[in-house]
Amino acid sequence: MIDYILFYSGLTLIFIGGICDLLGSLGLLKFPNFYVRLHAATVGAIGGAVIPLIGVSLVALGSDFLPNKYIIAGASFITAIIILIIAPTGSHALAYAAHRAGIVEWKPKCDHLERDKK
């Protein structure tokens, strides 16, 4: 009984992740400049990568047809935690570098980072 619950909950998590992934990529396509696209990138990276990986680990735990299911479950869970850590730091480094290099043309109402630097 527990296998079915794990299997289908993991499957729904993977489906939710797939839809989040699609929405994130559409957002990345449609947003005006780089800083707004970071929000869509976070949706695509966290919602589209961490949630399906947790779903994959649940599916691997709940499935009986896999020969060595605990390896796949553990590895995918660790990948989910790793992506949870590195996705924000990577996009933060990019955003800081883009702001320092000034390569993004945008019309800010007020640029807090610029004011803090002075």
Partner: peptide, 18 residues
């Protein structure tokens, strides 16, 4: 800009890992 391309490839490779 370069940052857009790198950001897109970043998200692409995360979702490819999934």
């Amino acid at each position: 800009t370069i940052a857009d391309a790198v950001l897109a490839i970043d998200c692409l490779s995360y979702d490819l890992a999934v």
